[in-house]
Design a protein around this nucleic acid. Structure first.
Length: 625
RNA sequence: GGUCUGGUAGUUCAGUUGGUUAGAAUGCCGGCCUGUCACGCCGGAGGUCGCGAGUUCGAGUCUCGUCCAGACCGCCA
């Protein structure tokens, strides 16, 4: 019995001991947890942008950057900033001279923590969200001093682009830049949640891949473990997403960095972000409908713009004929009118010898002065555009016509032209002539310029369209062979397949672009999923079977094992964000962009590497002659 | 690879046919100021005129070269 009792007691003892240990452990956890909580409260109870009149009399702790101090002698005001907004701190010489003195010494961009109470302002500032209140400060601690920044951290900064890029971390503190990044974040979130809701899976694909000669120049990365061999950074995850289709992941997407080693532009960075998508068991219409819905969803959710009806689907041929561009800005009409037949029958040698004569009708511009017309002529004569000259026809209010080539054409002739344009009295016809393709491109520039001058390119108006039926191939004069216009995996239209042998240039592809306001936002195609057809395509592009096998053998192999019909699209995420932000340069929607020469001036890259690094890679730098 | 534009104070810019000590605004420093919020007022400091040649009695200004930045053409399947 005693034995049992002792045993019983021992069990209880052990139990108590264990319980005690557990309680100790728990209390340590609680203490740490409380500390974490307190730590959080230690620096701030609120953010600078959130306090309102309803917070009056609350004791608060705020941390942030000093935006500005205003020293009025007896009083001092300090604007404290974080990414949520500004709060005004108030200091009074009478109530606390020492504290007020401290506040006066705060420099711009000092990081400070303050404690104080929220009070209603006697002088409210309706321009600020927090303009009804201010903080009467009890205590300041300087968490970190700051050197005077090289430019002002304000919406309208005095800093130029170069300086802002060098100190991008300061530039990012500014509202306009922050707003762009917030927009970017919201769009990415919305895209993910929308695509997820329609069963798309985000799958990551590798960044160190294989170089291929097609398309843009690759960024190349030397491999140490595989001497004298190189990876390439992906220009897009193209082949991987097709392999994912073979693998049965029938709806894939990825918001992913892509790399192209080509010269930069305002809308082109060497590393940029795509919304890369691919679907299996679809034809062109399925893709267009799916992503038209995504586009509409984004417009609604992000911009609060309701896009009514289906997007226009404009064949490439028509886009070129009527707008001279595969990415026409359809916020305004101003279609090209071809007057070759009518205008050719004459002595005017420029028109006589032209392959194409056509123009646009600028409504209500008949009153343009000589000076303005000369300026337009200079515009089309710029080397980048390259027109020889510009012919105008003013459709006067009195029904007469005034043209730069009156000598050659009668009023009757000009009237006929105006008829073709559907011009009304008061309108101005602007006409270019020459080689068909070149003239169409030049007219396109002129059309955009006129749209700009007439204020028809409103940033708050959005006119999306699909450009469809792109040519499969493009003849390259330099290499004297066909190039894939989209990429080598794009399928030809089934009704055009027979042309692949007879007239490859005429073959149309199941390829499409999404164009909004003259910006190419995205593009894609239905892919070839038949091994034979793919090989035929490689042959057309001038690959020997060996080359094709070496570069894309893995894809051909995969196609042997049951590839489903598939297709996809990729959107330029940076461009889309810039479009929504109403700006032209994608640099402003990228946190750390590269400059015109592909340099990051903040971290100063690219840079040279050590001799050891080169040796390890068996690389040697040879100076260019 | 090419065309164009620009480089002057910490910053944004002005600077006349080549001519005395290179200016303004803003920022910075100091002083004054009790309701500012683009605070105001007074004062001060601050310059390798991108760099290198050349022309000239004399160059921020003219010429050539070069570097840097931006826009565009080529390039960007």
């Amino acid at each position: 019995m005693t034995e049992f009792k002792d045993e019983h007691n021992a069990v209880i003892g052990v139990f108590l001991q264990r319980l005690y240990r557990q309680i100790i452990k728990l209390s340590i956890f609680v203490r740490i947890f409380a500390q974490i909580l307190n730590q959080d409260k230690m620096y701030r109870t609120h953010t600078c942008g959130e306090l309102r009149i309803s917070n009056v009399n609350q004791q608060v702790t705020l941390s942030g950057w000093v935006q500005k101090t205003r020293n009025l002698g007896g009083m001092t005001f300090v604007d404290l900033r974080d990414r949520y907004g500004l709060a005004q701190l108030a200091f009074n010489m009478e109530t606390n001279a020492e504290l007020c003195g401290q506040a006066r010494k705060l420099g711009r961009e000092f990081v400070v923590k303050i404690e104080g109470s929220v009070q209603e302002r006697s002088n409210k500032n309706p321009k600020m969200p927090t303009g009804d209140i201010e903080i009467i400060v009890d205590e300041i601690s300087i968490l970190n001093k700051a050197e005077t920044p090289p430019f002002t951290i304000e919406d309208d900064t005095d800093g130029g682009d170069e300086l802002r890029m060098k100190y991008r971390y300061l530039d990012l503190r500014r509202n306009p830049v922050r707003k762009n990044l917030e927009l970017r974040h919201k769009m990415a979130q919305e895209i993910r949640s929308y695509l997820d809701s329609v069963k798309f899976m985000e799958i990551e694909t590798p960044v160190l891949i294989k170089s291929t000669p097609e398309g843009a120049r690759d960024f190349v990365v030397p491999s140490r473990m595989n001497q004298s061999q190189f990876y390439a950074l992906p220009q897009s995850p193209q082949v991987f997403k097709q392999l994912l289709m073979v693998a049965g992941y029938d709806r894939y997407f990825q918001i992913v960095k892509c790399f192209r080693d080509e010269d930069l532009r305002a809308d082109r960075q060497p590393e940029f972000t795509q919304i890369d998508c691919e679907m299996a068991f679809v034809e062109q219409n399925d893709i267009l409908n799916t992503f038209e819905d995504l586009a509409k969803h984004l417009f609604k959710k992000i911009m609060n713009v309701e896009l009514k009806g289906d997007f226009l689907r404009l064949p490439y041929d028509e886009a070129m004929t009527f707008y001279g561009s595969d990415k026409p800005d359809l916020r305004f009409d101003m279609k090209f009118v071809d007057i070759t037949e009518l205008a050719k029958q004459n002595d005017f040698i420029v028109f006589n010898q032209a392959q194409y004569i056509g123009g646009i009708c600028a409504e209500g511009c008949a009153g343009y002065s000589r000076k303005k017309l000369d300026k337009l002529t200079k515009f089309v004569q710029k080397p980048q555009i390259g027109a020889k000259g510009l012919v105008y026809v003013k459709c006067n209010e009195d029904g007469t016509y005034k043209s730069s080539i009156d000598k050659f054409y009668s009023q009757e002739d000009l009237k006929k032209w105006a008829g073709l344009f559907g011009a009304k009295p008061g309108d101005l016809l602007l006409i270019l002539a020459g080689d068909r393709n070149k003239t169409l491109t030049q007219l396109s520039e002129l059309r955009l310029e006129m749209g700009e001058q007439l204020g028809l390119r409103d940033r708050n108006k959005f006119t999306p369209l699909w450009v469809v039926d792109f040519p499969l191939l493009e003849w390259d004069e330099e290499t004297e062979r066909f190039h894939a216009m989209h990429h080598p995996f794009t399928s030809p239209k089934s009704e055009d397949i027979e042309l692949m042998d007879s007239d490859p240039g005429k073959v149309r592809a199941n390829a499409y672009d999404l164009v909004i306001n003259g910006v190419e936002i995205g593009g894609g195609s239905i892919r070839i999923f038949d091994k034979e057809l793919q090989q035929k395509m490689f042959k057309l592009l001038g690959f020997t079977p060996e080359q094709a096998n070496e570069q894309f053998g893995f894809l051909m192999n995969a196609f042997k094992y049951g590839a489903p019909p598939h297709g996809g699209i990729a959107f330029g995420f940076d461009r889309w964000v810039a479009l929504f932000a109403g700006i032209d340069s994608i640099r402003d929607v990228i946190a750390f962009p590269k400059n015109n020469s592909g340099r990051d001036v903040m971290i100063d890259s690219p840079s040279s590497v050590s001799k050891e690094q080169l040796d390890e890679l068996l690389l040697k730098i040879v100076k260019k002659e």
